[in-house]
Simulated assay, not measured.
Amino acid sequence: MQLQQLAYFVAVAEIRHFTQAAESLGIAQPSLSKQIRTLESELGAALFSRARGNITLTPAGEALLPLAKRILADVDTARVEVQELAGLVRGRVRLGATPSLCAGLLADALRRFHDAYPGIRLIVEEGGSRDLVRDLTRGHLDLALVILPLADDTPLVTTPILRENLVVAMPADHRPRRSPMTIEDLQGRDLVMFRSGYDLREATITACRTAGFEPRFAVEGGEMDAVLRFVEAGLGLAVVPSMVLAGRPGLRGIALTASDPLPFPVRRDLPPPPGLQRTIAIAHRKDVSLTHAAKAFHTTLETYLTEAAADGALPTGVHHLRGGSAG
């Protein structure tokens, strides 16, 4: 089995057309077909069904596809790792982050890293936490800032770094029935909901169902910017991290609290009440060593957060979990 054959297989699997796949790879279609046949012969199973000109994956092809993608991603990472031996003069960091972080404090951390290592390419993938976990697991990212907890079988190492408050976003001219609000206060209210793949979607739905009611959606399916704009337009309320409201004068955030206020301060070593806060961790795969560039970014991010927490420069409602304090 050759890496080239796996690359050809992935191209056909994604495009579902031999001629178009050959064109995208810059090779002749007969050469592509020959390599695929050789791969199928070595594996002892057909990878594609070619009935009536429709190209579909066989069960063997379905099983091979995620493995082939992961192998090719790891080979690409290995190539970059060797290049970095020149001393971080060149290389790359593929970082995934949630939209709230991309719009908030991440930019300053990226600037600090770029100033220290100008030859390292920074590739940022913005998405919901579930999407980022999937891409990280498949080898498409080196690091990702994800929301805890993760599934028990997720093959990732996670380091909690931040805890941020969740608030109810509403138009700035809207007067809440009370402040702070509880999850129960959302019952019967129109909500703006994120698309699937956002942890905030599942967290909000779960919190509502735990409180004994089914949430009512006025509109659903948006990314962070779209959700905030829909709230500004008065379509409904949304549960969002407090940091995303910075620089949005058209919105206000109302704190969420437990149904029955606790008679004592919440201890830092205990988990927060469900639905009120969320924990952000920096994650990477267990089975792959971080590249030199990824390690350098990890260190840069930790240093930046520690200093920002000490200076009181973290956004309101954001807490550093590595010895920092609330921003």
Rank of each mutant, 00 (worst) to 15 (best):
M1K: 02
L3M: 08
A11E: 12
V12Q: 05
I15L: 13
H17Q: 13
S24T: 12
L25Y: 07
S31Y: 12
T38K: 15
A51W: 00
I55S: 03
E62C: 03
A68F: 10
I71M: 04
D74V: 04
T77F: 01
R79L: 15
Q83L: 13
L95A: 06
L95F: 10
A97M: 09
A97F: 05
A97C: 14
L105E: 10
L106C: 02
R112F: 01
G119T: 05
R130N: 09
L141R: 05
L148T: 09
L150W: 06
P155E: 10
P160S: 11
P160E: 10
N165V: 09
V168P: 00
R175L: 14
M181Q: 11
T182M: 13
G188M: 12
L191Y: 01
M193D: 05
Y198M: 05
L200M: 12
A207V: 01
R209K: 14
F213S: 08
A233E: 13
G234H: 03
L235I: 10
V240W: 10
P241A: 09
P265T: 11
R268L: 13
G275M: 00
R278W: 14
I282F: 02
I282K: 03
S289H: 08
K295W: 08
F297N: 04
A310Q: 15
G312I: 00
L321E: 11
G323A: 09
